[in-house]
Design a protein around this nucleic acid. Structure first.
Lengths: 197, 197
DNA sequence: ATACTGATTGACTCGTCAGTCAGGGAGCAT
DNA sequence: ATGCTCCCTGACTGACGAGTCAATCAGTAT
């Protein structure tokens, strides 16, 4: 594949992110993506076998980077609380850096239990499992309480972050810089410290 | 509207729940609903103006019951921890009683930020707000810590329950009776107690 | 020059499905 | 009996959009 071809493929992927974020996967037409990318309709099918394959590519590209970041946190020998913070931080920074892409991934894949969620359960589970391992290790070390199932805790942790992203997505407003930092702390406080009572 | 007509309307709604749960809203055809209900295609349009209106009806019917249950918990003067437990319990019992309906509501509405989520944000927010008020009151009473935003805590609480439902939905397996009880406790423990560390 | 390869174009096909509509009963009043 | 009002039917239409394909263009090798 020539250099120009690599570029065009990228141009189409980037256009798809904007279109999926704006209109949603089901509502947009392939011609919308072609228009946004400034290429002919047919060229989309030169690079991708189907509309779905474009979304798959976008998801996998980003998710693999995230899995690497989680593995990195897991491998480090920092205290579990900081390992969790590193993961929360990575996901929130991903949103800060490219909110459209994160919107597409959350809305069209990880929260779409029927359509693409089904296709990618495996990949999604890998993230939950890695987080679960961090919690389980902390429980063995006596740093976290052991009467809460580690897989359950992982769900709560990842679910809370996704819930925050969803809230930002729904609001449609740009998120002030200090809120990103504040939320990182609040997520870890909530999961590790709880509300009390 | 005659008694027979009320029944047919109900038959169509119940059939729609099964079809939406099995195939998803976008993938199913209106004729699938008619077939499942054992009525003619056109009758669906006699009772509902559109396919979307069926989903709206299903969602609003159930959501209003849930809002009432949350209001009930809020009104009671039990300790906040038990108020939260009552809400968690209500949602989990809803799933136990009619998993298909809860699947449809979670998958097709509350987690569908683009399509029906958008339409019903208002209703969805009402639930979050009520939970937030319970937390805020507990914070004023000094029972919950005050350095976590009450709206954020409400997100975490509701988000965790929805995450658990999603997990059950994804698994496709019937949930053992004892797990329902166990999860109610775990949700409250997680949100109020945290993991420690 | 000629031939070959891959990139690019956009009009067209073809299946799908939400929603329409004209009509056929069933009950009930007058 | 006649008319009226719902309930109910399912064949049909019209729009829409994913994916195809035959043709053109650009670069590069021989």
């Amino acid at each position: 594949m020539s250099a120009a071809a690599v570029d065009k493929r990228r141009v189409i992927l980037d256009a798809a992110v904007r279109v999926f974020a704006r209109q949603g996967f089901h509502t947009c037409r392939v011609s919308d993506i072609a228009d946004e990318a400034g290429v002919a309709y047919g060229l989309v099918y030169h690079y991708f076998p189907s509309k779905e394959a474009i979304l798959d590519t976008l998801f996998l590209e980003r998710w693999d980077v995230m899995l690497a970041a989680i593995a990195e946190a897991e491998r480090s020998d920092r205290p579990p609380r900081e390992q969790l913070r590193a993961i929360a931080s990575f996901i929130i920074e991903s949103y800060r850096h490219d909110p459209d892409l994160m919107k597409v991934i959350v809305v069209e894949v990880t929260r779409a239990a029927n359509t693409f969620g089904r296709t990618h359960v495996g990949k999604i589970m890998q993230a939950h499992e890695a987080i679960g391992r961090i919690v389980a290790q902390a429980q063995r070390d006596g740093v976290f309480r052991s009467d809460i199932d580690s897989a359950f805790a992982a769900q709560a942790f990842y679910g809370l972050i996704e819930q925050v992203l969803t809230h930002w997505i729904f609001s449609g407003l740009p998120v002030p810089a200090e809120e990103f930092e504040h939320v990182k702390t609040e997520v870890v406080e909530m999961i590790c410290g709880g509300l009390g009572g």
